[in-house]
Computed example of a mutant assay.
Amino acid sequence: MALSNAQVASRYGQALFDVAESQEATPQIATELAELKTVIEQQPELLVFFTSPQITAEAKKELLASLQASASELVSNLLQMLSDYQRLQNVSEIIDEFNRLYDEKNGTVRVKVTTAIELDDDQKTKLSAKFAQVVGANKVVLEPVVDKKIIGGVILRSKDNIYDGSVKSKIDNIKRLLLN
């Protein structure tokens, strides 16, 4: 029975997290995985290369070796295992699962912040501190997005919650009330 992508990500992510924890290396591995994910996001053709049947096994091994050269032993072993089991296409989801477990352990919440204008550092700091208070997190990591369609205000989206304080949603609510 074949595993779904979500099952693969969950199992490998959990195993990687457990091994990193046992080696007391989770912060270093999290940093390294973030760098790897950035490379994958900037060059999506990398995963196409590894999954393409037209590319020779030798060429794939050479590219894998170049990725492993700067990696820690743990991440290098993960990449090798994913290559051996032809699961390299799941590496982004595995990294996401590792990050989810790491954030959960550290009380970190990731929040997508949508505003009509770009926030300055002071605004980000205050928003982060206030949201951490509201959700009871030790740390809040903001992912800012600018969307002029919301007119003003802010929309906060975390894994579990959406807080919509945008002017657009308030106008839409007033419009709905007037039409009823």
Score class of each variant (00 low, 15 high):
S72G: 12
K139N: 08
K105W: 08
F50A: 03
I95M: 00
E58D: 14
V134C: 08
V8Y: 05
S70P: 04
E118I: 10
N138M: 06
A20T: 10
L63K: 05
E58Y: 12
E93P: 07
P53H: 02
Y12A: 07
N138L: 05
T114S: 03
T31I: 04
K130L: 13
Q42L: 07
E118G: 15
D122W: 13
T38P: 03
E32R: 02
P53F: 04
N99S: 08
N5K: 14
E62F: 05
Q43G: 03
Q43Y: 12
Q14K: 11
S92H: 08
P53K: 00
Q42G: 15
L33M: 03
D120L: 10
D96K: 04
P27R: 04
E58K: 15
F131Y: 15
A15R: 05
I95S: 01
V134P: 02
D120K: 11
K37W: 08
V111K: 06
V113P: 04
A57G: 08
A59V: 08
D121C: 07
G107E: 10
F49D: 06
N77V: 06
V145G: 03
K60H: 07
E73D: 15
D18T: 08
P27L: 02
S52G: 11
V135Q: 09
L142T: 02
L82T: 00
Q43S: 15
Q89D: 11
I94A: 02
V135K: 10
I94G: 02
L142K: 02
Q89P: 00
F17R: 08
E118R: 15
K130C: 09
F131I: 08
Q80H: 02
T114R: 03
Q23Y: 06
L127T: 13
K130Q: 10
S52M: 13
S66I: 11
L67A: 04
P44E: 09
V75H: 00
R87A: 01
S76V: 12
F131R: 00
E41V: 14
D103L: 07
V91G: 04
T114G: 00
S128G: 04
E143C: 00
L101F: 14
Y102S: 02
